[in-house]
């Protein structure tokens, strides 16, 4: 298990250098609106109050789709983003930015993208790693559903789907992220095959949550 608190050393930059880059415009913004400077700043600030433990592997390069559970709030998504950034140095692209200013453009700064299959497809073609959250659930041990439509672009490109279980809590500030073995779609990319892939990914997340959080007698 890897416990991460500090940003990747190679990416660490002084506040002065950060400010100089911002003032001269010599920072990077990608075509989907992500600004790695802002993600690194978030990562640096969050290390004071957020501890993320990561188990399992992610591909170091190339496209991938992570399917993860979610409750209420943004804790799971934030933990997943920071876990991926700090362990692999990669920028995670969670789906869910609203197309309304100023919230949407601000969310895009941190790598969040819009829930549109064309946008998912273009990011996967560019070799990016995407996070798709299952629908929200009250109980930490339950997982929701996922829209198969969003998995279709990845299935066409034969991109691996990685189930991830995120658990912990905003109150303790300690999160655990577990990545499971990659799942590949079977056969041709059809809506039925995408639905089957979505079901397998969901079952993978549920199995990891069951292992990590065994049901208590009062919740059975």
């Amino acid at each position: 298990m890897m416990v991460v608190g500090d940003p990747e050393p190679g990416r660490a930059s002084s506040g002065l250098e950060w400010a100089r880059r911002r003032a001269s415009g010599s920072y990077e913004v990608d075509p989907w609106g992500a600004d790695p400077d802002w993600v690194d700043a978030l990562s640096a600030v969050s290390r004071f109050g957020l501890r993320v433990s990561v188990t399992g592997d992610l591909p170091p390069t190339g496209p991938a789709v992570i399917v993860a559970n979610r409750r209420f709030g943004f804790g799971e998504v934030l933990a997943l983003m920071l876990g991926v950034r700090r362990t692999s140095g990669r920028l995670l692209r969670p789906i869910g930015a609203p197309d309304i200013a100023p919230i949407g453009p601000l969310a895009r700064r941190f790598g969040v993208i819009q829930a549109h299959p064309a946008e998912v497809g273009s990011l996967l073609r560019a070799g990016e790693i995407i996070a798709m959250a299952l629908t929200r659930q009250w109980r930490a041990t339950r997982v929701g559903t996922i829209s198969p439509e969003m998995l279709e672009p990845g299935q066409r490109l034969r991109v691996p789907v990685i189930p991830a279980a995120v658990y912990g809590g905003e109150i303790t500030g300690s999160w655990k992220v577990s990545f499971g073995p990659a799942i590949l779609g079977r056969g041709r990319a059809t809506p039925l095959a995408a639905a089957e892939l979505a079901d397998r990914a969901r079952a993978g997340v549920q199995a990891m949550l069951d292992d990590a959080l065994p049901p208590k007698w009062w919740s059975r």
Binding site: P31, W32, G33, D99, I100, R108, I113, Q114, H116, A118, E119, G121, S122, L123, R125
Partner: peptide
């Protein structure tokens, strides 16, 4: 248009 993909490919 609102809701349209930001980086459309030729299939859009």
């Amino acid at each position: 248009r609102r809701g349209s993909p930001m980086t459309p490919d030729e299939s859009v």
